[in-house]
Amino acid sequence: MIEDKDTTPAEKDGKYEFLMHYSGREVPCKVEKNQNKLNVHIEDNIQAELTIQQDGCILQTGGSELPDSAIDYIKKRILG
Score class of each variant (00 low, 15 high):
13 D>N: 10
67 P>I: 07
74 I>M: 02
77 R>S: 03
49 E>K: 10
59 L>E: 10
27 V>S: 07
29 C>H: 12
66 L>P: 08
35 Q>I: 03
80 G>K: 06
15 K>D: 12
68 D>C: 13
44 D>E: 10
26 E>A: 14
4 D>R: 13
12 K>F: 14
49 E>N: 07
15 K>V: 10
22 Y>S: 12
55 D>N: 08
59 L>R: 12
11 E>F: 09
17 E>P: 08
42 I>E: 00
11 E>W: 07
29 C>D: 06
28 P>E: 08
62 G>K: 02
44 D>H: 13
40 V>P: 04
56 G>I: 00
19 L>T: 13
24 G>V: 05
3 E>V: 04
54 Q>Y: 14
72 D>Q: 13
70 A>E: 03
63 G>F: 03
33 K>E: 03
8 T>S: 04
4 D>F: 15
40 V>H: 02
76 K>G: 11
78 I>Q: 04
25 R>E: 09
38 L>W: 11
5 K>D: 00
43 E>V: 10
11 E>I: 09
60 Q>L: 01
24 G>M: 12
5 K>H: 01
58 I>T: 09
62 G>S: 01
54 Q>M: 10
52 I>L: 05
45 N>H: 15
56 G>L: 00
74 I>H: 07
23 S>D: 10
22 Y>T: 08
60 Q>W: 00
68 D>T: 11
36 N>L: 00
70 A>W: 01
36 N>V: 04
15 K>C: 12
77 R>D: 02
13 D>A: 05
50 L>S: 00
15 K>T: 11
71 I>V: 14
19 L>F: 12
21 H>I: 12
21 H>Y: 15
31 V>A: 10
20 M>I: 12
74 I>A: 06
24 G>H: 14
6 D>C: 03
9 P>A: 00
49 E>Q: 12
13 D>R: 03
16 Y>L: 06
76 K>C: 12
49 E>P: 01
2 I>L: 11
7 T>N: 07
35 Q>P: 04
58 I>A: 05
63 G>Y: 02
